[in-house]
Design a binder for these strands. Structure first.
Lengths: 219, 219
DNA sequence: AATCAATAAATTGTATACAATCTTTGGACA
DNA sequence: TGTCCAAAGATTGTATACAATTTATTGATT
């Protein structure tokens, strides 16, 4: 039997998904009551979900006013990506020296899945796998605090950046994510610590600079 | 007039303080109802505070069971300190190249306050100033995500590590924090980027190793 | 027409009652 | 005596009513 989820968790997932799918836009006001009617549950679990998203930087919760979908500035977006460089490459440095064949096979499988999702134009699946690739080193590090932070920042990035209209129309050979992830995988496989750290940095900064030219698409 | 705080915020502060002062011990179970009676408010704001502390790693909230004061293993404590090294030295690298005289003066003032608090054996004040010293570079970095993370990890450290029985009895010349902070200040003043990063790393790892020998005092 | 104050409306903040779920206890049965 | 099941107890999860606070509206006054 599939585990019965609490409403609080459901509410969190639904609102997050709404932001990712751009049904809720940055800066938009969202009231507890509205969500409560929309997904048919009381304000109590909605409220808890709002608070959690506030902590994670997805919503801006203003006392007695309401919640607003976070509307990051260019600087804040850059800040998050630079922090991701620091944390994700730190995770890589911890992990690369002791990767096993199993780890490499799993990483290869992730890359293959990502490719399949891309070719099938399955956007949500693509994003899911992308997240798994980026958090995998942190997961292997067994530092739960590091992992949690990397996951939160990845999710934040997903909500505000990766979802481009052009995603569906760019020809596959121009998608830089896939070769850049391949580059990370190679260093990972070879036990090349600095190579992995550099590949992560290059990939994240490349993603950032690609996106910053297209900010008008989002706001 | 002093701003009227929401009960939710009050509950958060009170429970956190109870953990810091070791009135609530690691591993101890804490129920919403008990806190609710203890500080005389309904379960609603308590519950919100619990969730927040769960996100920050101060409580472990188990569905339908209750909340437990987090009881970190040696490894988890080390993990947090190593993460602090990464983040606090990253903040220093960002900030040191552009410190102003004003920044230096403020940092000097913090060190002086810390010394006063120590000599007055004012523990809570000492901890407060210690926190300000460690978060100052992140504050100057103007990366709010970095700052929030550094603050959360500092607070976590405070709750689980720094509060030693011996604090009151150690002779002042043996307290390594103060000279180590002085070392950080010197690099900060001189614009010595790597010196600052190294001083931070040395200080945090020294604190960690001092404490890990004394774990029996806590658990 | 502009400004300000008072009042109404909207929304979050809190309290409380009840439901769902987990844990423990007690006893029947092998 | 040990094991399993059922029922009771304890605690969180959710719904709802009401209070507090902020924002919007209205109208009087200049």
């Amino acid at each position: 039997m599939t585990t019965k989820k609490r409403n609080e968790e459901l509410a969190y997932e639904k609102v997050k998904r709404a932001i990712m799918l751009r049904r809720l836009l940055p800066g938009q006001r969202v009231t507890e009551e509205w969500v409560s009617e929309e997904i048919n549950m009381s304000r109590t679990p909605i409220r808890a979900a709002f608070k959690r998203m506030g902590n994670e930087g997805l919503l801006e919760v203003v006392p007695h006013r309401g919640a607003f979908v976070y509307n990051p500035s260019d600087k804040e977006i850059a800040d998050v990506f630079q922090l991701r460089v620091v944390l994700e490459s730190y995770a890589a440095r911890l992990v690369v020296p002791k990767v096993t064949q199993e780890n490499v096979r799993y990483m290869e499988e992730l890359l293959a899945e990502e490719m399949r999702a891309y070719q099938a134009k399955d956007f949500e699946e693509f994003m899911r796998v992308n997240g798994l690739i980026h958090t995998y080193p942190a997961k292997l590090s067994e530092n739960k605090f590091l992992l949690q932070q990397v996951e939160t920042l990845n999710q934040w990035s997903d909500c505000y950046l990766i979802l481009k209209d052009e995603f569906y129309t760019v020809p596959i050979e121009k998608v830089k994510s896939i070769p850049e992830h391949q580059c990370m995988l190679n260093a990972f496989r070879d036990g090349n610590i600095e190579g992995m750290a550099e590949a992560i940095e290059a990939h994240l900064l490349s993603t950032l600079s690609d996106l910053s030219g297209k900010r008008s698409v989002f706001n």
